[in-house]
């Protein structure tokens, strides 16, 4: 809702031509609310169907457990029993609890490590691409290639690279079993994931860098600021809103990582099993109750991360604060001209 109401006051800035009959300050005309609700109703209906319903259905499902047994002739006697929160309680005890905590740890580890590396690498890529040099547009296009490759395909590519007689071992002169259980498999996933998604951050950050006006840098140069100073005082602060959005998207994406470890290392390998893979495995074994419980926990985890990011770090996902940098820039421009005048 915030998305749609935000532009409203902007349109009604006093003095804007073309709205003569309206009194400034009054937010809604008669029937406007109803109109808005009607116009929104298809969206709400679609959202309810594709988001709310599956969510409620998953939560509902997670409260049940298939209690199947075999009768004397070997046929399955079916029955779904309401078990309350037992599926959730099982996440912390016994064998299923061990698998859950392992998957939870892996998911968190992959998210933190890959997003951190991607951000650093993406920033470097953006800085490189932002400078004027020959073949810049070619570099920009080619850097997008990993991002354009479907994840499953890149998983296969890296599987070839990482197999025991693959190019990774040949180049390193090592005999690391990348696709077997162990730390090496974690590393393989991180490398492939960073290769694939650093360009995403790079390009988003590049877009953010390109709206920084050139005169800011010119002024900095006049003031005698070096490259590092420019990076720390101009580029990074001004690119921060874009960077935060990019990092948020990547984190949400990384939290539901599934296809890369699945294809690259293989299902059932505990070293790289993520929450999504665990939920898939459970549903594959027709244990829909616990699969839903895993999915709901993953959903809550993702939701918490998103909320924390938006609230604490002030990530501007909706673009509601887009105006602020412009104002700041104008202010800065103003102070600069004042300064210039004062020095004259």
């Amino acid at each position: 809702m915030t998305v749609t109401t935000a532009p409203a006051p902007r349109n009604q800035t006093p003095g804007k031509p073309g709205t003569p009959g309206k009194k400034p300050g009054k937010s809604r005309t008669p029937g406007e609310g109803r109109m808005a609700a009607m116009l929104l109703s298809p969206t709400l209906l679609v959202l309810a169907l594709v988001i709310v319903y599956p969510l409620i259905s998953a939560i509902h499902q997670s409260l049940f457990r298939a209690e199947s047994g075999l009768d004397a002739d070997g046929f399955v006697t079916e029955g779904e029993a309401f078990v309350g929160l037992a599926n959730y309680a099982d996440l912390f005890v016994g064998e299923s609890g061990r698998r859950f905590l392992n998957a939870f740890g892996n998911t968190t580890f992959f998210t933190v490590s890959t997003v951190l590396l991607e951000t650093v690498l993406g920033l470097c890529l953006a800085l490189a691409m932002n400078r004027a040099f020959r073949g810049r547009s070619f570099l920009r296009a080619s850097i997008l290639v990993p991002w354009a490759v479907p994840t499953a395909v890149s998983g296969l590519l890296w599987r070839w690279i990482f197999q025991s007689d693959g190019i990774a071992n040949t180049m390193l002169g090592s005999e690391i079993l990348w696709t077997a259980e162990g730390t090496a498999s974690k590393l393989a996933v991180i490398i492939a994931e960073v290769w694939k998604t650093a360009p995403f951050i790079g390009l988003l950050v590049l877009a953010g860098m390109q709206i920084i006006p050139e005169e800011v840098y010119e002024a900095a140069k006049i003031d005698g600021a070096g490259w590092w100073r420019q990076l720390g005082s101009i580029t990074l602060p001004l690119v921060k809103p874009t960077l935060l959005v990019a990092v948020l998207f990547r984190m949400l994406d990384a939290l539901r990582m599934f296809d890369l470890p699945f294809v690259l290392i293989g299902p059932g390998k505990e070293s790289v099993e993520t929450l999504s893979m665990l939920a898939w495995d459970e549903s594959n074994q027709l244990r829909y109750g616990s699969a839903s419980a895993f999915a709901v926990v993953l959903f809550l985890y993702v939701a918490v991360v998103a909320i924390v990011f938006v609230k604490v770090l002030g990530t501007d996902v909706t673009g509601a604060n887009r105006l602020r940098p412009v104002k700041n820039r104008q202010k800065r421009k103003a102070t600069r001209s004042q300064k210039a005048e004062a020095t004259r």
């Binding site: 809604r28 009607m38 169907l49």
Partner: peptide, 21 residues
């Protein structure tokens, strides 16, 4: 006015929920 638009919204939400249910 507000009152009415809120009713509308409630109605819409309820419809959506009932459909989902």
């Amino acid at each position: 006015m507000r009152q009415r638009s809120r009713t509308w919204q409630t109605l819409l939400t309820t419809t959506a929920l009932v459909t989902a249910a």
